[in-house]
Design a protein around this nucleic acid. Sequence first.
DNA 1: CCGAATACTTAGAACCACTTCA
DNA 2: TGAAGTGGTTCTAAGTATTCGG
Length: 557
Amino acid sequence: KKGLNGDSTLKERYPEGIKWKFLEHKGPVFAPPYEPLPENVKFYYDGKVMKLSTKAEEVATFFAKMLDHEYTTKEIFRKNFFKDWRKEMTSEEKSTITSLSKCDFTHMSQYFKAQSEARKQMSKEEKQKIKEENERLLKEYGYCVMDNHKERIANFKIEPPGLFRGRGNHPKMGMLKRRIMPEDIIINCSKDSKIPAPPPGHKWKEVRHDNKVTWLVSWTENIQGSIKYIMLNPSSRIKGEKDWQKYETARRLKKCVDKIRNQYREDWKSKEMKVRQRAVALYFIDKLALRAGNEKEEGETADTVGCCSLRVEHIKLHPELDGQEYVVEFDFLGKDSIRYYNKVPVEKRVFKNLQLFMENKQPEDDLFDRLNTSILNKHLQDLMEGLTAKVFRTYNASITLQQQLKELTNPDDNIPAKILSYNRANRAVAILCNHQRAPPKTFEKSMMNLQSKIDAKKEQLADARRELKSAKADAKVRRDEKSKKIEEQLMKLEVQATDREENKQIALGTSKLNYLDPRISVAWCKKWGIPIEKIYNKTQREKFAWAIDMAEEDYEF
DNA sequence: CCGAATACTTAGAACCACTTCA
DNA sequence: TGAAGTGGTTCTAAGTATTCGG
């Protein structure tokens, strides 16, 4: 078994920062070129048919395709879209089309709806053909060779042009994401590999051979000016080892977390404001699993915060609330503009410190004005090698899963009931990390369907029991078995209903994929004889192959 | 030392394909 | 046989953290 000596093996595989020795790939797959609309699909301006130039038409179709979406009603979206659209117009178009509200995209929109309907109605053969074409593309471009291993690439297709859809209240929503050309692309591969050829008539921006990074292809995106990358699939060696390393770091934190907690409690009393702020922030990160909270460029992104970037307006202090003392009420938008709302009783010292930090400040002022993530992480680095703010999230998520599994698993339960316990443990973590989802649109209906299934099953059971009672001795055994089977089915349905109800607004996937040491789950499955397929689907099993390989039933995080 | 650039992980929504049920 | 429901997959935005360059 690997991993017996902790994470030393992965550090020694390559010298200092070297990620690979050989890397060969075929380059990216570009978005299909724009196909102009058929002549009979019309765009209207101010009630009159207007034929658009190809470039203007393409951008118009992006808007038309989103017409049903709430986005297109938003002021900022419309303003940004219109501004960028006008840049693509000919000078005649520019002088004619001066108001978005006079543009009528409905015919275009109907055409696209009909198209997608037609796609659904395609014959088996046609669908099969498309499937085969996709498979061919995947086979040719979806893999690379990295150091003697054929590896799956995560995103080998270049993002197609379209309208930028930020999350939350994003100032750039509706802007045009331009088409990426070979001339934008930087290829990264090894010198001795077969270098991918650009499409005929085109050139790459650059070919480089940087083995200190893991990406194969990069380009600069035009909305934020940030770099996008093509990288390997989570099942790859390079991602798997990194993932393993992440959990090993979290396990090292487990060994010193008590010391660190004592330390920050001491620091609440420090004479230095900076130290106190650092200690209170760390307490939040540890206790509430808040994100670090890097600074963001104002006006470039939605207004969201993490711990270090919390503002005075994001917390309310209640000396007493609902019979509890020293309650802090958090209300802010975090990553992806997901709301974090929580009322937390804190220790008196923390409370008093917060009062101090808020003194003479405006609502929009930083709560921790002497702190940022860089200062915090530097401090954490001194407490433990490799420790950063996000390690606390990983640690607290994984340790919570382990504890909850211990607490909730009932040895006498059958498999569905044990899986409910697993999901509940998973749910405790998702709640801790504030992983939310919009309740599925069909939620109420699907709950009702499930309930009627349960009712039907109950009736079936009642029938079976009546039959059992009246059955002759020789038939009793058979009847009894039948009742038992129905009972089991009923129980399974009820468990399913409970699970679904509890999961209405909780997203389990993110914690499962990114925060929970998979070895905890593997060990739990082994201990209770649960097939691993019940916990991890195929993709997840591929991603966590290293853990499935490694963990025995006695694994301790 | 700082802000900017870079590289990588984490995130929810949209989309799609398969299954189930009427 | 088709519509609905569901789980899985894809997409790409939005974070974290480190490195770079002046």
